[in-house]
Computed example of a mutant assay.
Amino acid sequence: MRITLAEEIMLLSLDDDSGQAKDRWAVGWIVAGGLLLELALAERVRVDGAKVEVVDSSPTGDALLDDRLESLAAWAGSTKSATVAAWLRKDQARSVEAALQSLRGRGIVTEERHKVLGLFPVRRFPEADGTVERELRERLNRVVLEGAEPDPRTAGLIGLLHGARLHRLAFPGEPGKLVGPRMAALAEGQWAADAVQETIRATQVAILAATTAATVAASAATGA
């Protein structure tokens, strides 16, 4: 089954036991980035430096991508600062929810709702069909651990994970010093069109800036 980069990232992030997303804040950034990259691969958007522009608003045929494309086009047309960072900040929560619901609609995960202490609502998304995630992890292993040549989408996925320092989501049993250099090389490789490579680069810069800001704010709050 072919799923989007955003759905692949969500699958990697969902804990097999709890059905809840690990590293939810960082994952939100790369889920939104994955949708942006997929739209760039489909030649619907172009990224130039920090700027993002919709160049073709026609449907892609994928409901998840078309929904985010419509939102991106409306937003970009109403603002003078249509940057990658601004879009990721605006859309990360919506992108995560949209990706989760798309996975549920495809029958890959189910949704469970309950309350903690009878008060606080919690949602879980346990896997219903493990085939898709298993094939995804096998594909990543072939590229990163065995040295196979990636297709543009796989290289893009690796670039996003590397930019967010989320190597452990894809390779939970491997030390970062083993997978990090290979992922870094793929993230910088000339494997795709300039516009797609620029989308990866701009997304990585936005993630780094947001992570740095959050770290500084946390240090200031604790007096560290």
Rank of each mutant, 00 (worst) to 15 (best):
L88P: 06
S71L: 15
A99D: 06
V55F: 09
S95R: 11
L65V: 04
L37Y: 12
A63V: 09
L103G: 01
S81M: 15
A32L: 13
A40L: 01
A98M: 10
L37R: 14
V31T: 12
V52L: 03
A40F: 00
L64T: 07
I30C: 03
L100T: 05
A85C: 12
I30F: 08
R89Q: 10
S57V: 08
A93C: 12
T83M: 11
S78I: 12
K51L: 12
V96F: 10
D56R: 07
V54K: 05
L36P: 12
I30Q: 01
A86F: 07
G61P: 00
G105M: 02
L72S: 07
E112T: 01
S57G: 13
D66A: 10
A74E: 13
L36Y: 11
E111W: 02
L88H: 06
A98K: 13
S71A: 15
E38I: 05
V54A: 00
K51H: 09
T110L: 02
E70D: 13
S95A: 15
A50K: 07
V55T: 12
A42P: 00
S57K: 11
Q101F: 06
D67F: 14
D56I: 12
G33C: 06
A32T: 14
L37F: 08
W87D: 08
D48E: 02
D62T: 06
D66P: 10
Q92G: 06
L72D: 09
A73T: 10
L72I: 11
R68Q: 15
G33Q: 10
V84G: 03
S78T: 09
A42Q: 00
L72E: 10
G105L: 03
L41P: 06
D48C: 03
T110W: 00
E97A: 14
T83C: 13
G107V: 04
D48S: 05
L36F: 12
L41Q: 09
K90R: 14
T83K: 13
S57I: 12
L36M: 15
E43L: 05
S78P: 07
G107P: 08
K51T: 04
Q101C: 02
E70Q: 14
L100K: 02
